[in-house]
Structures are given as structure tokens and as C-alpha cells.
């Protein structure tokens, strides 16, 4: 049996024989789903991407924003 088969078998048997681990994996998967498929997609867009496509545009936006926040003082 080559090394990859051994590693696969190790993990496969490990996951199959889990008891408490099954519950924990379920929690991990639900949590990751909520985090990446719900929160990241719908609530946490990359804000700067909406302000410019290139790095130069984003840098200009930040510089303007900083100046504005000083002027607003």
C-alpha cells in the first residue's frame, strides 16, 4: 500500500469511527457555511472594490477620504 493510500485510509477510518467528533464536525461545517456562504457573501463585501477597480483608483479614494475626514474636523 503506497503512502497516499495509507494516509487516505488513516483519515477515512478516523472519520468513520468518530462518535463525539461527528457532532463537532457538524458544528464546524454549519459554522463555516454560515460564515462563508452567508456572512461573507451577503454582509461582508470588499468595500474598496466598489470604489475602484485598480490599485491607483483605490489609493486615490483613500487619500480623498482621509483629506475629507480632516476637512470635516
Amino acid at each position: 500500500m503506497n503512502i497516499f493510500s495509507k494516509i487516505f485510509k488513516f483519515y477515512y477510518e478516523g472519520f468513520r469511527s468518530m462518535t463525539l467528533g461527528k457532532t463537532l464536525w457538524m458544528i464546524i461545517l454549519i459554522k463555516l457555511f454560515i460564515m462563508f456562504a452567508v456572512l461573507k457573501v451577503f454582509f461582508f463585501p470588499n468595500f474598496l472594490s466598489s470604489k475602484g477597480d485598480t490599485k491607483a483608483e483605490k489609493a486615490d479614494y483613500i487619500a480623498t477620504e482621509m483629506e475629507k475626514r480632516t476637512i470635516n474636523n
Binding site: F44, P45, F47
Partner: peptide, 22 residues
């Protein structure tokens, strides 16, 4: 298991709420 990846949410916040800082 329960704590893993909870810190990643902080990184989500950097990109959305703290973009000037990021």
C-alpha cells in the same frame, strides 16, 4: 472545533468595516 475559524470573522470586518485601515 467550536473555536476554530471564529477569528476569521475579524478578517471579514477588516475588508468591510475597516477598509481605510486595511
Amino acid at each position: 472545533a467550536i473555536g476554530v475559524a471564529t477569528g476569521l470573522i475579524l478578517e471579514f470586518q477588516f475588508g468591510t468595516n475597516w477598509s481605510n485601515y486595511s
